[in-house]
């Protein structure tokens, strides 16, 4: 019931299309909203951190500088990746390979 209650579904193409060229939003804000980070939560946080405003803006700046520039290879935490790609996950990915059982695909 909670999921039905007024919460927008994240990752809708129309949402991104609406925000894509909205220059009032920074790119990271656009992505955050699109990924469905709760907007109310964000606002609350800002209220809480009113006194730490200076600190907050600094950390944001640091984060922006932090981001490696113009990468073409994504940066992964390889321990996470190794944990993610257990045998089950690899079996689940099999559908994307030609070695997969095609009959199964036809069934659904």
């Amino acid at each position: 019931a909670k999921s039905l209650h007024g919460k927008k579904r994240p990752y809708q193409a129309a949402d991104l299309a609406r925000m894509l060229y909205n220059d009032k939003l920074s790119i990271s804000e656009v992505l955050q909203r699109w990924k469905g980070a709760d907007e109310d939560e964000e606002e609350e946080n800002i209220e809480d951190d009113d006194e730490d405003d200076d600190f907050f803006s600094k950390s944001k700046q640091a984060r922006e500088d932090d981001g490696a520039e113009d990468r073409t290879v994504p940066d992964y935490d390889y321990q996470d990746l190794a944990a993610r790609w257990s045998d089950d996950a690899i079996e689940a990915l099999r559908a994307k390979f030609t070695s997969a059982d095609l009959l199964d695909e036809d069934g659904d």
Partner: peptide
């Protein structure tokens, strides 16, 4: 892929350079 800073940044840069906007749909 499209939900990354680089791709959204490219969309905005292209628009600034006078290219037409992208259309997105599911």
């Amino acid at each position: 892929v499209i939900g990354t800073e680089e791709v959204v940044g490219l969309a905005r840069d292209l628009k600034t350079f006078g290219a037409s906007s992208w259309g997105l749909r599911e």
